[in-house]
Design a protein around this nucleic acid. Structure first.
Lengths: 340, 340
DNA sequence: TCAATTTATCGATGCGTATCGACGATGCGT
DNA sequence: ACGCATCGTCGATACGCATCGATAAATTGA
């Protein structure tokens, strides 16, 4: 592997000059720059990351702490990871995976060994054991998710309250007076990932202000429980029933249960939930969705932490950014009665 | 951040002694070791990765090149990534994400800058543009997937031929004379990820040797196409029909199409396919599955590349490892006629 | 008891880059 | 023509660790 010294020699300049050509931190004449660039090209020189990190006290690597929760939807997780990685590249950074099974010690390790300049924590819980550690690390940390106490931390997440609000308003506008929410899996709810609560709060508040009723029913991944919830929900509804079904599994089971009763989404019943556009289109009756915009959340997360890395003016930062959600009408919900 | 020099000072020894305590590459007396270890504890010293890489010419980082293929099942991809990352930790290595959108240049970058000691390439295609580059990199590269020409490369993958063989044998043993395979999405097949062909070859060979018929039908993610395939398959079958349905989407659509015709899996029709155990159990009729063992493939992949890194005796290696697949009977297939 | 080993530790050096101070060359105004 | 600021480049040094040769201390054998 050629070094900057080799480049310098080939170009007939000092090593430091090569360094300045690369960083642009001092003026270099057109002539020398050309020579150096030619030598770099010629030798296919690439700077050594270790040496760069050592001398420059910057690795240009961001640690991404990925959760290990079997109940979680792996597909959506992968979408975050993938977008985060490619966005990081746009900011000239790389992503190092830190798995949850190392626990909080993993954070101390990658920061302590200076493998990373900063961290992104995914799937942050209400009371997250990683937070006390995160607060003491002297590097920027970005949370995806909002803990109970976000003081001294930088957070971003989808605006779940807005999502709940939008769903309820939308269904109410379509003429529903009673809206049934099939809730997340208890395993998820009990982990206190508070987006569930935020969603519900948004939904309940909207219901109250609009004078419609929102009923909550147990959901999860169990066919029997969801079927029972559907029965109860239907019994408690006069007029056309409306369902909010958070994830794919619940949607699948709900759809099947309704089909068994001869109810067609968009005609005899409304369903709205969260799903990727492609998956939503794939359904027999394309699903109206509330888009939590994982890509946008990922992109902004990377941007925020890169800004923090750039600034580097120490001192704990604190901020909280909520990404607006977007509702998309397809065929699974009734249309509002009149003029668009 | 404390350095090894600080530790040395605190312990009253030379910096090099601290280094030897850590590496164990020279004998150290019990007494000094204790002192040094105490100092390390006291200062919560952690060696600087950059300096270590620079001096030791080893980063202990493995680059993981993740594909970006929308058609791919993100969930299974995430399982690979997650298991690879935690297995790497067991071998005292970390995983750096390299996204496909950098293309082959990404490989050159992470290796050229010596961010990584080696690479794992996922989702390797028959004629993969990354391979010529991979061959010239002077670091170990491990492929998950088998290209058309694996010479000079180290590969691992699930044994798809075995999977095809097992599915056909199993269905034949249950009394089916005609077996219908709903194929992968054309987008996947056309990418020449040859596991599709290997699966088919295994299936066809088994069929021939058993004297049963295997019919192939177009699949994918399109409801209309799959429904038509199901109709044709049923028309072409006398007796109880049997289906092999590769992925989740195909399974979902197939199940719905069969239900619409009043056919119940495990009674009037057999279905077998690839799915995670939890997902398989979740179905109304638990799905008999062929397990492609992504976790085992991931674990072995990491082990192989770590062994190569350990060995470090240059020269191109070459090997090909196939991980046996496992068939699991649940309720969606007929049972073999007689005494187990 | 003394030379020959072995054992435990130290000091010095190199890894490849970034950065700082210094210095000659150039351009400016007067 | 002369001092002065600016520009462009060089040389030296630090970053934190691994490693090699050397040295001092402890052990062995005869």
């Amino acid at each position: 592997m050629p070094t900057s010294k080799d480049v310098a020699q080939a170009a007939g300049v000092a090593q430091s000059t090569v360094s300045y050509v690369l960083s642009g931190k001092r003026p270099i004449s057109e002539k020398t720059r050309k020579k150096v660039e030619a030598a770099i090209e010629e030798l296919t020189y690439q700077p050594n990351a270790g040496a760069r990190a050592l001398a420059g006290r910057r690795t240009r690597v961001i640690g991404l702490v990925i959760p290990f929760i079997p109940e979680l939807e792996m597909a959506s997780l992968m979408e975050f990871v993938s977008v985060i990685a490619s966005t990081a590249r746009q900011f000239d950074h790389d992503i190092l995976l830190v798995t949850e099974d190392e626990g909080a010690a993993g954070l101390r390790r990658v920061v302590g060994q200076q493998i990373c300049d900063g961290l992104i924590l995914m799937q942050v819980e209400d009371e997250d054991e990683r937070l006390p550690v995160a607060r003491t690390l002297n590097v920027p940390v970005l949370l995806i998710g909002i803990p109970r106490d976000p003081s001294g931390l930088v957070c971003i997440d989808a605006d779940f309250a807005m999502a709940g609000d939008q769903c309820v308003r939308d269904l109410a506008a379509a003429g529903h007076n009673v809206i049934s929410i099939i809730e997340w899996q208890p395993a998820v709810v009990n982990r206190h990932v508070n987006y569930v609560h935020r969603f519900m709060r948004g939904a309940d508040a909207a219901a109250e202000s609009l004078g419609v009723a929102v009923h909550h029913f147990p959901g999860g991944a169990d066919v029997a429980i969801i079927s029972e919830s559907v029965d109860k929900a239907l019994a408690a509804t006069e007029g056309v029933p409306a369902f909010i079904a958070p994830d794919r599994t619940i949607q699948d089971i709900l759809r099947r249960a309704l089909a068994a009763k001869g109810l067609t989404p968009g005609v005899d019943v409304s369903i709205i939930g969260s799903a990727s556009p492609t998956l939503a289109e794939l359904q027999p009756v394309p699903l109206s969705t509330i888009d939590l915009r994982p890509k946008e959340v990922s992109r902004r997360a990377v941007k925020i932490i890169c800004d923090l890395l750039e600034a580097e003016n120490q001192g704990p930062h604190e901020s909280l950014e909520l990404v607006p959600t977007v509702i998309t009408h397809r065929s699974s919900t009734l249309r509002p009665p009149s003029g668009n």
